[in-house]
């Protein structure tokens, strides 16, 4: 009798915990991410005729004035185009460079792979500004500063280590027996690449591409040093409102513009990874 009571009590506690835990996590995420977004959204909608000031909890009058202004009278549309274009090219460049390198380091086990793997990670620990100034000078000498090429080069340099890291791990964790089985059944190099290697590293590739894309979209330091003033992207426009002529309302608009595509991309890519490739990646071997 008593035992049963305790049992049912325990069950209840567990139920409660099961409910509370996701709820708690969700609240933390909401505070961490949701509040700033809400805040930015409200600020972006403030009507300049009725300033939002203490002690009002919410703006007294909402309008799309700032949104209209940003789209009508600034370079934002072109900058959005630039950002997407640069992120796209950077992703392609990273993919082309990382795939053969990761294969050589992860699968072929070349002499000194361990050493190269560490070298590759070095850019990740360099302070962005320090690297940016040096790189900016170098690209200037090369005559590509202020061009799309120059910006793609620096974005690629920043994102490549992450892409490489992910792909090297992918290649390393691929069982040799699988590759041997394909050759054994008559597959040549092309088939091995398209039917075995590629599908198996696809999850890593998608994750790497997602990361590269977002890194490129958000990169400010290097874009500014190498690209300004000819090439503007969403972050450089955003930073221009954070300087001396600080305009919270306008900055809010631009930061939302920067956030929305990234967020969408993340959600779509996440879903895609889950449904399509997780199975393959986590398949029992």
């Amino acid at each position: 009798m008593n035992g049963q009571l305790i049992k049912s009590q325990k069950k209840l506690t567990r139920r409660l915990l099961e409910l509370l835990l996701p709820f708690g996590l969700l609240s933390i995420i909401m505070v961490w991410i949701g509040l700033p977004i809400l805040y930015a959204l409200l600020w972006s909608l403030v009507n300049p005729e009725y300033p939002w000031s203490y002690p009002d909890l919410f703006p007294t009058n909402l309008s799309l004035f700032q949104w209209e202004y940003v789209f009508k009278y600034t370079t934002i549309v072109k900058s959005i185009g630039n950002s997407f274009f640069l992120a796209f090219l950077t992703t392609i460049a990273c993919f082309m460079l990382a795939l053969p390198t990761a294969y050589a380091l992860g699968k072929r086990k070349l002499k000194g792979s361990e050493f190269f793997k560490i070298i590759i990670l070095l850019p990740m620990v360099f302070p962005g500004m320090a690297m940016g100034l040096f790189l900016g000078r170098m690209l200037h000498v090369m005559g590509v500063s202020g061009t799309y090429w120059g910006v793609v080069i620096v974005h690629t340099l920043v994102a490549l280590p992450y892409m490489l890291r992910i792909l090297i791990v992918n290649f390393e964790s691929m069982p040799q027996d699988l590759i041997d089985a394909a050759s054994n059944l008559g597959a040549g190099n092309w088939v091995k690449f398209t039917e075995i290697y590629f599908p198996m590293i696809l999850p890593g590739l998608v994750a790497g591409a997602m990361f590269t894309f977002i890194t490129s979209m958000e990169e400010f330091n290097l874009t500014f040093i190498v690209g300004a003033p000819d090439i503007t992207t969403i972050p450089t426009v955003l930073y221009s409102y954070l300087g001396e002529n600080f305009l919270r309302t306008r900055a809010s608009v631009v930061s939302l513009i920067l956030l929305i595509p990234n967020l969408l991309f993340l959600i779509v890519a996440e879903r895609k990874i889950k449904t399509e490739y997780m199975g393959a990646a986590l398949g029992k071997m």
Binding site: P175, L178, N184, G279
Partner: peptide, 13 residues
């Protein structure tokens, strides 16, 4: 030749 692997080595995808 055709080999049946000890680890099976099935193509997971």
């Amino acid at each position: 030749t055709a080999m049946c692997f000890q680890s099976y080595a099935l193509f997971p995808h």
